[in-house]
Design a protein around this nucleic acid. Structure first.
Lengths: 372, 372
DNA sequence: ATTCGTAACGAAAACGTTTTCGTGTTAACA
DNA sequence: TGTTAACACGAAAACGTTTTCGTTACGAAT
């Protein structure tokens, strides 16, 4: 077999085999590029002899089509972009796992960007990826963006023909498919459970209202109380300012909660909008000499490692992060493959605002030792 | 301004603006593609007038070069592939955060694949990404691969000219840059601390030996004892079979540890090779009526959420996952940019086996409440 | 002997860039 | 007036594919 020069040289000098291309195969076998391409896709245009020869050669040199070239030609990359605020976070990484599972199964790759809760990083990341690198986005909005209420970058991306699926932290101002947790009803369920367990003074530990999930869970708390004929006492609601990340200001959190307990000694149940608040509440309660669940029962939101392995283990509202990721991925890929089946059908429809889907994932209460 | 047909149509029917290309700009402005390209890169070949006009038009239509086309032309994608066993895992997600930080800073994207501890998925993922989608890999080997000791896919990838950086779970059989934790010395430090704290009978809770990090930490445990004149008693070593994932078989773990404590009542210190084992040991000890740290002191490995928020909080050996990720990313990108500076210099060097770097990240003991 | 059909293949365009190498025009210079 | 140099721009190749549309040759049918 003869080789083109460069190829031969590189073989001699090292065991390195650069990826072989159609052009190289064509030269070696003295046929045209088109013939090689057709033979490898088993086109019946090519004779059986030639096909066999080409396929054997390709296999020998482990030919695999170049993805980038394919992407350019097909104008689709078969990869989806994930843009989330934070990755060292049980919920978000669980969602990624769900996305990756479905994506892989359906032949897609995932590329992740982290906004780090920053508006600017969110925009930069989107622009970096929106220029051909991906076919669509799955994202959860950063806190800063939620505060600013500036969503132009999402709409701009959508207007460029790139579909977006939002999950968890979503917003009405953007028209796209959404996958959300039933935060409201999850909270209702949790608080009802506390009520059923004979708690009479249920405290709420929540975040500031601009994070929609915090707001919804707070509303659920109020709702559950009211339908049970209890009126929500604002003294029993503790709002934590999480603009600074709490992980590194644990003492502040502990002090606030301790103060909360001390000034509201009647509290016999606590609902916290996340795992950390719940676990910290348990810790603080114990330091104050209260026993769980006898003196205070606690339920958290988000079923992560902490809930499972805390002592006592924590009763939580599970969000099914993986399901969320799977749904989001399926939604996005469905949209992608529908739009290239009949490319204009979808986009020329003037009423497309109404066509978007909002999937609500039901929550589930996982009972553990922090409730009776 | 006149428009080419397709573009005009799409504008009329919807507010959607498909990404504009050089070719379209060229047609609108009645110049050639090359002129547009040059004008946008401020080439002095182009007159000031033309340049201004083109740049204004490009800005108006928000032109951004297509990444895929650039990748094809430059034969590099500016994205790096991460391949890890699991993402819902504090350590691994921390590493990703470190990688993403550096990658972003240096103009790279990251695409993640999950092997899910499976040999086959590892290979499939690698092949999927190695065909042009990425410029290099950062990876940690799956358990199944470690068991099989089959590393041909790594070497094959390297031989195709794609650099790999391995972290944490690495292996001598593959020649590449590596970033590892100083597992051995971390374990030594931890056990020495227990000895200094007057523990006389230190138990070890570890994994099976095929996971190198488990093996190294075990060796560190033995080493620390021996240099202190204590001989390691194999009764005090509990090896957990984690071939099935432990998260879902918590009771098995608890029972084994309970049995371990009951048959070795003299234990007054425990070193566990991960967070979960350590926290579970604390939980079991308490159930047995032992108090921490008075009766038993505990140190774990891996500083995650559990350690920080357990009660009592856990003294651990921190691995600095983010540092590991940052180092790995820098190593990989350095290698990538060096190799395209002088493309053959590096690869034609026959002694390149010796050129690879192994970075060891020092561990650090974080003292909390589980030790005196 | 001419037409036709078909089998087997090649040329070329297209995807969106960048870059090298022309080429034509104009002004300056001898 | 003829030569040259600078200027401003365009054509085309290249990256690696797929696919459409030829084109050739040859046997069969008229």
């Amino acid at each position: 077999m003869k080789f083109i020069k460069n190829f031969e040289i590189s073989i001699k000098l090292s065991p390195m085999k650069r990826k072989i291309t159609l052009k190289q195969i064509a030269r070696e076998l003295d046929v045209s590029i088109s013939t090689v391409s057709k033979a490898l896709s088993n086109s019946k245009e090519i004779s059986e002899d030639t096909t066999k020869k080409i396929q054997a050669f390709a296999k020998l040199y482990n030919y695999k089509p170049n993805n980038i070239a394919l992407s350019l030609k097909n104008r689709k990359t078969k990869t989806i972009g994930i843009l989330i605020p934070e990755i060292v976070h049980h919920f978000f990484s669980t969602v990624i796992r769900g996305i990756e599972l479905i994506a892989n199964r359906r032949g897609y790759n995932v590329i992740v960007g982290l906004s780090n809760e920053s508006f600017t990083k969110e925009i930069i990341n989107m622009e970096m990826l929106a220029n051909g690198s991906i076919d669509g986005f799955i994202l959860s909005i950063s806190k800063e963006t939620l505060l600013k209420q500036d969503y132009h970058h999402f709409n701009a991306t959508i207007n460029q023909g790139m579909p977006i699926v939002m999950f968890d932290r979503v917003v009405n101002e953007v028209d796209c498919d959404k996958v959300i947790v039933d935060d409201f009803n999850g909270a209702v369920k949790a608080v009802k459970k506390l009520i059923d367990n004979d708690c009479n003074h249920i405290g709420l530990i929540t975040t500031m209202d601009y994070v929609s999930v915090g707001r919804l869970r707070t509303q659920g708390y109020v709702e559950a109380l009211e339908t049970s004929g209890i009126d929500a006492n604002s003294d029993l609601i503790l709002k934590i300012d999480d603009s600074l990340d709490v992980e590194n200001h644990l003492e502040i959190l502990e002090n606030e909660i301790a103060q909360f307990f001390k000034t509201n000694k009647e509290i016999d149940g606590v609902f916290a909008v996340n795992e950390l608040y719940a676990v910290t509440a348990m810790k603080v309660a114990r330091k104050l000499g209260l026993s769980i669940p006898d003196d205070i029962q606690v339920i958290g939101f988000t079923d992560g490692v902490l809930s499972k392995h805390a002592t006592p283990s924590l009763t939580t509202v599970s969000q099914h992060g993986q399901k969320i990721g799977e749904q989001a991925a399926n939604l996005l890929i469905d949209r992608l493959e529908a739009s290239d089946a009949e490319s204009d059908q979808y986009f020329t429809n003037d009423e497309r605002k109404t066509d978007f889907i909002k999937v609500v994932i039901e929550t589930e209460i996982i009972e553990r030792e922090s409730t009776k």
